[in-house]
Design a protein around this nucleic acid. Structure first.
Lengths: 93, 93
DNA sequence: ACAATAGGCAAGTGACTGCTTGCCTGTCAA
DNA sequence: TTGACAGGCAAGCAGTCACTTGCCTATTGT
């Protein structure tokens, strides 16, 4: 559970999820260039790879090896658990 | 936005939110003893105070000074934003 | 007034994080 | 087969984090 929040705590990782939400099955290089284009983030390939490892460990990203490519896909199921854990009630008022 | 997730990334802070969800307007000392009783967490008073600062900065906890007491109350509004940001769709299947 | 209670400030520490650098492995096309 | 392409491994580094320790302020009851 805490792994999910730790994964989401980083801005670069949230940007990665945003990109994966728009298009499934993206490779590491695709995601790198998209971070630069649309989010003005220019980390190294390794840095992005490590971020994806964190997201995968949290269950937020599913990976499929296909030939020499490694395709990443978002899984929003863990995010649904968040809403369930703390049911939204009225602010204490 | 990232502040919310950073706040939620820590287990002790999530436990604090759980306690505040059960009872509003708890003091620092009340929360300390409840952490020990129900969650087997025995951090120092200062540690808990710092956690509450983080939760307050994230907008998840609202504070009201009353005499020598400082009463903490949860505000679940920021949690609702999470569900909105990444709408739950079917897992990639 | 004064002691007990509730909380705050600030420095220090060990662990973790995000990131980089350098090099290596595996896959595909010509 | 060999070179280009996609990705992986591991060490190192600066910054942040959770936590403690020691001391200080403010409010309350007697």
């Amino acid at each position: 559970m805490g792994d999910i929040f730790k994964a989401l705590a980083d801005g670069t990782r949230r940007a990665l999820l945003d990109e994966l939400l728009e298009r499934d099955e993206q490779t590491l290089f695709e995601l790198c260039s998209r971070l630069a284009m649309k989010h003005d983030l220019t980390p190294t390939r390794q840095a992005v790879s490590q971020h994806l490892d964190v997201l995968e460990a949290a269950g937020l990203v599913v990976v499929e090896r296909r030939g020499r490519y490694k395709l990443h896909t978002i899984d929003t199921a863990p995010l649904a658990q968040i809403a369930e854990r703390w049911p939204t009630r009225k602010a204490s008022s």
